[in-house]
Design a protein around this nucleic acid. Structure first.
Lengths: 144, 144
DNA sequence: AAAATATAGTTTTAGGTCAAACTATATCAT
DNA sequence: ATGATATAGTTTGACCTAAAACTATATTTT
């Protein structure tokens, strides 16, 4: 087993996690949603149902133009709505709708399923080590 | 630090690795290439410069239609050429060209830079643990 | 041997993602 | 205060990726 597999495994794992989440969304009849939309709903749930476009981008780590595309889609589907800021008119706030709130439980279930699948057969210690080393790996690519 | 960050970190790390490789490709004046093309060249270098489309797909973990697109691009750029199989006419072989061979050294350099950056400040033991746990994580998403 | 099935690859179509150029608004410098 | 700069978002265009439908060839079944 060679060092070079790190890139391969990261990439492969990411794809598998995504596929897993997609499958769960289908199971729960949320088939108009895909994982990236889920990310946005999740950060909204975690932040009183309201965030600016920029904040969403920072929280889910995607480019602002991507956020525009995703939020517009989510808005068209009725899960969120956009609202111009009153103090600062450059800002656009994204607010969760009733329809969006209605599926929060399903999302939490999926989250739990993802993490329990991910950490199957992991001891508490292994979980901590993996997360610590992964964070370190991630930080290594920040230098200059 | 919460369990749920595992998905975020995997995803973030993947993107950063990709950006890093892209930067290196630009540095070395290989700006007509992007990381996914690099993967194909790398597996060709590792396999006597000749593989079928299907084998490439299995080795780099991408769908066959993606392989068609990438190999066609690489072929248009002159780094590889396609050749119909003689025994089995369904098979298409991809062979590396002289131009493709010429940049092998640069690729190996980039590989080394990626791994040494990834494992900066990692002890030998930490490397092994990370790879082992990552592999386990990856396998967990295979179950049924 | 003919029909059914499997396999390799391509085409089509669609979606996520980002960089760059752009618009609108806000803040800063002088 | 006004011109320069910064910031929030959008638009456009490009690329990677994959699913589904399709073509061509090979293998298996009967």
């Amino acid at each position: 087993m060679n060092d070079k597999y790190i890139v391969y495994f990261i990439s492969k794992t990411k794809k598998k996690m995504n596929n897993f989440i997609e499958g769960k969304l289908k199971e729960k009849a949320l088939d108009d949603l895909v994982p990236s939309y889920g990310n946005i709903l999740t950060v909204l749930y975690d932040n009183d149902g309201k965030l600016s476009m920029k904040e969403i981008g920072q929280l889910i780590g995607k480019d602002k133009s991507t956020i525009t595309a995703l939020v517009n889609k989510l808005s068209k589907l009725g899960y969120v709505k956009k609202e111009k800021g009153k103090e600062d008119k450059r800002v656009t706030y994204v607010k969760i709708t009733e329809k969006g709130k209605d599926i929060e439980d399903k999302f939490n279930d999926i989250s739990k399923e993802v993490y329990s699948r991910a950490y199957k057969n992991f001891s508490k210690e292994e979980k901590e080590v993996l997360l610590r080393l992964l964070k370190k790996l991630n930080n290594n690519f920040d230098l200059d």
